[in-house]
């Protein structure tokens, strides 16, 4: 092995096999999927402008380091029994996201179907402001910096978030979400992958996602 050309070509050729298999192939095979037409319109439904903004907030603050967004098939895992979703997620579920947040950690719950489990906007605001107030025992950090604490003017703002207990704002003040918080919650409430897809196997049962 004293010849540069031999080493050079060998090193690059061997490596190119994995490039073809793990990069080029999925790009050609999965890189141009379109939404599926269903009774309820296109699935997955496109993200709203606010949800796209929320996707950026999700990325900027690293939600992915604790929350996955993938439901693995029943033959391989207990994800479906655990209630993370009614069916496994497939490539088409992720076509609207850039980037998709598949995740590699579950320090927090999986969020693939968080809208199905927690459809309440107010709950999300309270949870983001001070997670312990709605889920005691949570180790999620507070995202207070996505909110403003401001003096109440004539009457409370319509979107003021009710916060009780030790983390409540001082008397005469209220907690209101910033645009980032609104966007993030809009994104979280778009996470609902319980519609049927032909490639995803069995259609969901009636109480799907519970």
């Amino acid at each position: 092995m004293n010849k540069l050309p031999l080493l050079f070509v060998g090193i690059l050729l061997v490596f190119s096999t994995s490039w073809i298999g793990l990069v080029a192939y999925p790009y050609l095979k999965l890189g141009r999927l379109a939404p599926e037409a269903s009774r309820d319109g296109l699935v997955p439904p496109p993200l709203t402008a606010s949800a796209i903004g929320g996707e950026r907030v999700y990325a900027a603050n690293g939600c992915i380091y604790c929350h996955s967004q993938q439901v693995r098939p029943a033959w391989l895992s207990t994800d479906i029994e655990k209630g993370w979703g009614p069916r496994q997620t497939v490539a088409r579920d992720y076509i609207r996201e850039s980037p998709p947040f598949l995740g590699t950690m579950r320090t927090g719950p999986d969020l693939t179907n968080i809208d199905v489990r927690r459809p309440d906007r107010v709950w999300h605001y309270q949870h983001l402001y001070e997670p312990g107030t709605v889920t005691p025992g949570s180790i999620m950090p507070s995202f207070r910096f996505l909110f403003k604490v401001q003096p109440i003017k004539d009457r409370p703002s319509f979107e003021a978030v009710a916060v009780h207990g030790p983390h409540a704002p001082p008397r005469g003040y209220e907690v209101v979400p910033t645009q980032d918080a609104r966007d993030l919650v809009a994104y979280l409430l778009s996470l609902k992958h319980n519609y049927p897809l032909p490639e995803a196997g069995d259609p969901p049962a009636a109480d799907a996602g519970k």
Binding site: P26, A91, I95, S98
Partner: peptide, 17 residues
């Protein structure tokens, strides 16, 4: 992944490659 992002789950494959 960054300059000309590919679609959807392909990101995951390239990411872990």
């Amino acid at each position: 992944l960054i300059w000309q992002p590919v679609q959807g789950s392909v990101v995951g494959a390239v990411n872990w490659w």
